[in-house]
Structures are given as structure tokens and as C-alpha cells.
Design a protein around this nucleic acid. Sequence first.
DNA 1: ATCGTCTATCGTCGATTAACGATTTTGAGA
DNA 2: TCTCAAAATCGTTAATCGACGATAGACGAT
Lengths: 98, 98
Amino acid sequence: MDIEELAEVCKALGHPARIRILRHLLMENRCLCGGIVEVMPLAQSTVSQHLKVLKEAGLVRGEIEGPKTCYCADHEAIDRLFAGVRELLTIDQSENDT
Amino acid sequence: MDIEELAEVCKALGHPARIRILRHLLMENRCLCGGIVEVMPLAQSTVSQHLKVLKEAGLVRGEIEGPKTCYCADHEAIDRLFAGVRELLTIDQSENDT
DNA sequence: ATCGTCTATCGTCGATTAACGATTTTGAGA
DNA sequence: TCTCAAAATCGTTAATCGACGATAGACGAT
């Protein structure tokens, strides 16, 4: 995980609606877009847009099943986020710059 | 740490320049704005703006020392970020929604 | 008191974001 | 084949962001 990638993931998480969507997916395991729209006070197109951002950041995967799309959270990506924060933001003063 | 706060912190980290600035502060421990400008390919006003964002997110503290301002990274805030990600983004399916 | 240095803020510009409604696309099923 | 439902995309709007140069403010030193 490099700095650019961490920034991209953080940027994707930099909106409360997207964190809520991701949490919902973590709890439901698998979920259609419509299932999220029901829970969020946002239009379908807006939710779809947020899902796209999360997907592009790698935090969410979506399998197209006919006219539906089944989304699920990518646990590995969240683990990588952990690792990235630990790697890039936990620095001893003795370390060198990069 | 609630969802809004985590989103704010993530948003602040959602730009590579700000991650680099934070890393620099973590390594230098204390640093003037000018010291960061030297290292970054950005204008002084832009760096100052990024520092403001980081400060408002609580990731960085700045003590005014006369005409200078000494910045340092807030290690506790980074720990809170860890905790926030763990708390809000590591969810067992058995948990309830919020 | 003035000068010089450091930093914050202002104003501006183009680019991006967030939100919505409307439209299009895609398969499943009648 | 036609229709229906689900989701993505398009087009628009207001707001925000990122960058910069210019300016203003706050001391320390002369």
C-alpha cells in the first residue's frame, strides 16, 4: 500500500453516507442496491454513485446478477486499510523519509 | 468516535499531500510550516491550507511561537483513527445496525 | 520605529463532488 | 415478444476543493 492508494481509500471513506453504506454491507453480508436505498435517506441514483466510489476504491465488490447487482464488503480491503494506516502513519522518529 | 467524525478524519487523509505532510511531522516530531514547504512541491499558501485541514480534523496540533507556528502530529488522534476503523468497520454479522 | 521573516488569510480560477430527476440498459418472467 | 423491476448512467445544479499569487498580521532583530 503506497501513499496514493491510502489517500484514495481514505477519500472514499471521507463521506458519512459511504461509511454507513459500508457498515450496512458488513452487517448484511450481501445486499442489493435497493436494500441500501431503503435504509438511507438518499435517492437511488445517489446511492448507486456512492457504491461506485466504494467499488473503485476496492472497498466493495459487486456481482451483476441479471438486472440486479449484489454488493458485498471486501474484508480484505479493510484489512489492507488497517495495514496501510499502520505502515504509513505509525512512524518512529528513527525511520527515514520516503 | 462516531461515523461523522471518522468520515471527517478520513476526508482529511484523502489527499496524498496531506498524508505526506503528516508523515513528515511524524518523523520530524516538530516542524515549522516552512520546513514542510521545503520538502513539498507546493506553494506556501497551499501547504498552510493543508495544515489547516489536518488541524481541523485533529490530526495535527500547532503552537504559535511568535511569527512562527510549530506543528506536530497528534499521535493520540492517529490511535483514535485506528480505534475508529476497528470499531466502525469491523463488524460481525451478528451485530445490530446503528 | 522599522525591517525582515514566517505564516495565515483572501480572492480567484478551474476541476471535482454531491445530490437529484430523468433516461437507458439489462435480464427475468409473463 | 413485451413488460416489469433493478440499477447504472446522463445531465444539471450548487457547493466544495485544490492550487496559486497577493496581501495582511505577528513578532524578533536591528
